[in-house]
Design a protein around this nucleic acid. Structure first.
Lengths: 316, 316
DNA sequence: CTGAAAGCGCTTACAG
DNA sequence: CTGAAAGCGCTTACAG
C-alpha cells in the first residue's frame, strides 16, 4: 500500500484503486485520526481551495467625511458568501486592506478565485490576467474582457426610486449620497444618475447633497434637506436613509408626510427602523449566488446584471 | 547568489546577508515582479499566516424557531477582527459550518490560530491541544487549562439591565430571549440568570419568554409581553429588542411609557431605531482587540473578562 | 490495480 | 557572509 494509493483513496479516485484496498485505507485513516494537510495539497496540486473576498475602503464611507461606521451591508455580504461557498468546500479568506495592495494578496495566497467588492480602479496590473485565479468583480466599475462581473442595474434602481416619489406627487426631490462628484465611478454616483434622468423626463431637477454614506452622514444631511424645502429624498443607502430619517425627526419634520424618503439596498435594517423604509432592493442573496456561480464556472468576461425591485413600506 | 540568500533577504534576515547582496536581490525582485508563494512558505515553515474565525450556528438563532436572519453582530465582529489583524499580516479565514465539524477546518488548514465564537460544546477532542495553533474562545462556555478565552461579564450585564429597570420603578419584569432552557450553556441563559438574581434581591420575580434571538422572534414575543402585563423587558439582544419594540408599537403600546425595553449588545442598530435603544454595551471592539492580543501572545488558559456598560437612551 | 519517483516553491540548519 | 542539500506533506504521471 503506497502513499500514492492512499492519496488516491482520499481524493475519491476510486477508478484507480480496488474496493478492498480503499476500504482498508479508510479504516486505517479513521483509526489513526489522520487529517490531510491542505497546505501541502495546495502546493502540489496548485489548487488552494481558498477563495478571497476583497473589501477595500469599507471602514469609512467617504474620504472627506471619515466616519468609522461599518455599513452592515459588508458583514451581510460576507456571511451570505461563506454560506454559498459551503457546498464547494472552499474556504473564504478576507482582505480589507487598501485597494492599492490587494493584488499581492491575490497572488501570494494562490487563491483559486476571488470576489472583489466595490473596486474603484479602472484597470488592474496585467499580472493578474496570466494567473489561473478567477476574479469576479462585484459592484465594481472595472470592465475587462477577462474578468467576470456581477452588479445591480443601479441606473434603473436610482430611477425607480425617483419614479416612485414622482408618482406620489413629490415635486422637490433631492438625492443624498456620498462623494458623487469626487469619484464618478462609484455606486452612489450611478444611482444619482439614474434618478436624475428620470427627473429630467418629468421636467424636474434633482438636487444633490453630498455626505458620507453612513448613518451619521444621513443625519447631518437632514438640516440641508429641510433648507432646500425638499419633499422627497432618494438616499444612496439604507443606513444613510436611516440617519436622514432620524435627523428629520429630530428637526421636527414628519416622514413621510413632510418628507418622503426612499432608501437603497433593502438591508434587514430597513424593516427595523420607524417608519419602515421604502427602499430599492438590490437582491444581495441573489447577487452573492450569481457571484459564486461565476466563480465556479463562469466564462471569461461573463457579466450578470441583477434587476432591482422597489419595496414599498412606510417611509414614502 | 543562492536561493537561500534570496529567501533570507525576503524574510528581512539581514544579519545573514551583506547589505550589497541584499540590495542586489531587492532590485531583481522588483524588476521581475516576483511574488512569494505563501503556500510553499507555509508548508516548509509550518506557519501559515492564516487565522481562522469559527462562527457556528449563526444562520438561525434558535433550533426551535429557525429564522434565516443573520444577526449583524457577526458581520461587525468579522470586520473588526480583520482590521485588528491587519498589522500582524495574518489573513483571516472563515468557517461558518456546523459546530460538529470545525475541528477539521482547524487541523487541515494549518492555521496559526483561531477565534471561535459562541461554541456551545463543553469539550473538544484532545487532538487540538497537541497542535501548535492557538485557540481563543469568544463568548463560549468551554473551560480548559490550555485554551484562551475572552468574554463579557454576562451575569453582570444581565443584572445591570434589570437593575436599571427596577430603579425606574418597573415592577413586572420579563426576560425575552432564545432557548434559555434548552441550552443552559448559552449567552442568553447567563444574561437571564444575571437579571434573575437582581430581581430576586428586590423581591421581584423575573418572568421568561423564550423566542428566537432575532428581530422576528422579538416581534412575536410582543403579544405575550402584553399578555403578561409586563412593564419592563430585558431582551437578550439588540436585534430582538428592535423586533419587540416594533411588535409592541404595532399592538398600540408605547415604549417606554407602557413598556420599557432594554437591549443587549449596543450594536450600531441600537441608535438607529425609534425610540433609540437603552442597552447593555458589551464592548465588541475592545473584545475583539483582547482576542487578537491573546492570539498573538496570550498565555495558555489566559482569560479576559470585559466589563459591560449600560447605555441609556430612550427605550427605557 | 499498485508503487517508486519526481516535483510543487519555499525554509532551515549546516558546512564552507 | 554564501551556497548546496534536505525536507515540509502532498499529487501526479508513469512504469510495472
Amino acid at each position: 500500500m503506497s502513499i500514492a494509493t492512499v492519496s488516491n483513496v482520499l481524493k475519491g479516485r476510486m477508478s484507480e484503486v480496488s474496493a478492498a484496498t480503499a476500504e482498508r485505507v479508510q479504516r486505517v485513516v479513521e483509526k489513526m485520526g489522520y487529517v490531510k494537510n491542505l497546505t501541502a495539497a495546495a502546493l502540489s496540486s496548485q489548487r488552494s481551495g481558498l477563495v478571497g473576498a476583497v473589501l477595500s475602503n469599507i471602514f469609512s464611507a467617504s474620504p472627506s467625511q471619515p466616519d468609522v461606521e461599518i455599513n452592515p451591508f459588508y458583514g451581510e455580504f460576507l456571511l451570505l458568501l461563506d454560506r454559498e461557498l459551503q457546498p464547494t468546500g472552499s474556504t473564504l479568506c478576507l482582505y480589507t486592506g487598501r485597494e492599492e495592495t490587494f493584488v499581492n494578496f491575490l497572488l501570494e495566497r494562490n487563491l483559486d478565485g476571488a470576489i472583489l467588492v466595490g473596486i474603484v480602479a479602472k484597470e488592474l496590473p496585467p499580472v493578474l490576467e496570466r494567473r489561473e485565479s478567477r476574479l469576479v468583480f462585484f459592484d465594481s466599475f472595472l470592465q475587462h474582457r477577462v474578468y467576470m462581473r456581477v452588479q445591480t442595474d443601479e441606473l434603473k434602481g436610482g430611477g425607480m426610486a425617483a419614479d416612485y416619489l414622482i408618482a406620489q406627487g413629490r415635486k422637490h426631490l433631492v438625492f443624498v449620497g456620498g462623494a458623487v462628484r469626487d469619484l464618478p465611478s462609484n455606486i452612489p454616483a450611478v444611482r444619482f444618475e439614474g434618478a436624475s434622468r428620470v427627473c429630467d423626463q418629468s421636467g424636474l431637477r434633482l438636487m444633490l447633497i453630498e455626505e458620507s454614506t453612513s448613518f451619521e452622514g444621513g443625519r447631518r444631511a437632514a438640516r440641508r434637506v429641510l433648507d432646500l424645502k425638499a419633499d422627497g429624498v432618494v438616499a444612496a443607502a439604507d443606513v444613510m436613509a436611516a440617519g436622514l430619517i432620524r435627523g428629520l425627526q429630530e428637526a421636527g419634520a414628519k416622514v413621510p408626510d413632510d418628507v418622503a424618503v426612499v432608501g437603497y439596498d433593502d438591508l434587514p435594517l430597513a424593516r427595523m427602523i420607524s417608519p419602515p423604509l421604502t427602499t430599492v432592493r438590490q437582491g444581495l442573496p441573489e447577487k452573492v449566488q450569481a457571484a459564486v456561480e461565476l466563480l465556479k464556472d463562469g466564462e471569461k468576461g461573463e457579466v450578470r446584471i441583477i434587476k432591482p425591485h422597489l419595496v414599498v413600506r412606510e417611509s414614502a
